[in-house]
Amino acid sequence: MHGRLGFVLACFGALALLPLIAGPYALDLVTKIMVYAIFALSLELLVGGTGLVCFGQAGFFGIGAYAAVLLSPESGSPSAWWLLPACLAAAALYALAVGALSLRTKGVYFIMVTLAFAQMAYYVVHDTPLGGGTDGIYLYTKPLLWPGRDLDDGLVMYGFTLACLVATFVFLAVLLRSRFGRALAGIRVNEQRMRATGFSTYPYKLAAFTLSGAIAGLAGFLFAVKDGFVNPELMSWHLSGAVLIMVILGGIGHLRGALIGAFAFALLQEFFKSEAIFGAFAKHWHLGLGLAIIACVALLPRGLVGLPGQWRERLAGRLLGPRAGVPTEVAP
Rank of each mutant, 00 (worst) to 15 (best):
2 H>A: 02
3 G>E: 08
6 G>N: 06
7 F>G: 14
7 F>V: 05
12 F>K: 00
17 L>N: 03
25 Y>V: 15
25 Y>H: 15
26 A>C: 07
27 L>D: 00
28 D>E: 07
29 L>N: 03
29 L>M: 11
32 K>Y: 09
33 I>F: 07
38 I>A: 05
43 L>P: 02
45 L>P: 06
46 L>D: 07
47 V>L: 15
53 V>F: 08
55 F>P: 01
59 G>L: 00
60 F>N: 01
61 F>S: 10
62 G>T: 10
64 G>N: 08
65 A>Q: 04
69 V>M: 11
69 V>G: 10
71 L>S: 09
72 S>Y: 06
76 G>F: 06
79 S>W: 14
81 W>Q: 04
81 W>T: 07
82 W>G: 06
89 A>E: 00
89 A>F: 08
93 L>F: 10
94 Y>D: 00
99 G>F: 01
114 T>F: 06
114 T>C: 12
114 T>Y: 07
115 L>C: 04
118 A>T: 07
123 Y>F: 15
123 Y>I: 13
126 H>V: 09
129 P>Q: 15
129 P>L: 15
130 L>Q: 15
139 L>P: 01
139 L>D: 01
149 R>N: 05
149 R>H: 10
151 L>H: 09
153 D>Q: 11
154 G>P: 10
160 F>H: 03
161 T>V: 07
162 L>G: 03
164 C>F: 11
167 A>F: 10
170 V>R: 02
172 L>C: 07
178 S>H: 05
185 A>P: 02
187 I>G: 02
188 R>Y: 02
189 V>S: 08
190 N>R: 11
192 Q>H: 09
192 Q>T: 14
195 R>W: 00
196 A>M: 12
197 T>R: 07
197 T>M: 13
201 T>M: 00
206 L>S: 11
208 A>W: 03
211 L>T: 13
215 I>M: 09
216 A>N: 13
218 L>W: 04
219 A>S: 15
219 A>T: 11
221 F>H: 01
227 D>L: 12
229 F>Y: 14
230 V>Y: 08
237 W>K: 02
251 G>C: 00
251 G>D: 00
252 I>W: 00
255 L>Y: 01
257 G>K: 12
257 G>A: 13
258 A>T: 06
259 L>P: 09
261 G>P: 03
261 G>W: 01
263 F>D: 07
264 A>C: 11
265 F>A: 09
269 Q>R: 09
278 F>V: 11
278 F>A: 10
281 F>K: 10
286 H>E: 15
287 L>V: 14
288 G>N: 03
291 L>K: 05
292 A>S: 05
296 C>Y: 03
300 L>G: 06
300 L>T: 06
302 R>Y: 10
304 L>I: 14
304 L>D: 10
306 G>Q: 04
309 G>N: 12
310 Q>S: 11
318 R>L: 12
320 L>W: 12
322 P>T: 15
326 V>H: 13
326 V>T: 13
327 P>G: 01
328 T>G: 14
328 T>M: 12
329 E>D: 09
331 A>R: 05
